[in-house]
Amino acid sequence: MRLAGGVLPKVCMCGTHILSLHPQRKEEQRVKISLSINGTQHEADIEPRFLLVHLIRDVIGLTGTHIGCETSICGACTVLLDGKPVKSCAVLAVQANGGQVTTIEGLAKDGQLHPMQEAFWECHGLQCGYCTPGMIMAACGLLKETPNPSEEEIRHGLEGNICRCTGYQHIVDAVKYAADKMVA
């Protein structure tokens, strides 16, 4: 279908409106940012309201970082920003300008799983797997701070990550397994 003047119709999110008929919105500010993701430098021209998780998934195309609750509770979207775990749904992409981001895709090296990934595999630290990327990134952040954590420290460190399948015990086992392996 073509509208008069040859404008291609775009359907609004509600599915019934045609966007070109909506009133014109105020022009959006765009900001140029540059950041490293998994060691590769990326430039992006984005609206400042854009969230870091949207940049990672929708612009860069790295969909290993999951969106769970989108209310900064569940931790599925956890990535490392300048080496520290953060919830990428609670960080504006502009706040990460100039920073270094590591996502789950950045952990394995030369086809070798990162010890934390291997540990989740070995200890059955996942069932459905939806929380796993965030869980692994948070656990990596925890071990940077506390290389040899007690069970209590692991549970405290992962308070920001929710798993609805496992009951957490295997996740705690996995973090302990990875800690032992990384210290050795």
């Binding site: 900064s72 931790g75 956890t78 920003l81 520290k84 775990p85 953060v86 919830k87 609670a90 960080v91 948070a138 952040g141 925890l142 701070e145 460190g157 308070e159 920001g160 990550n161």
Partner: peptide, 9 residues
């Protein structure tokens, strides 16, 4: 406060 991710930001 919160959790480690929140405390980092």
């Amino acid at each position: 406060i919160g959790d480690q991710q929140v405390r980092n930001r």
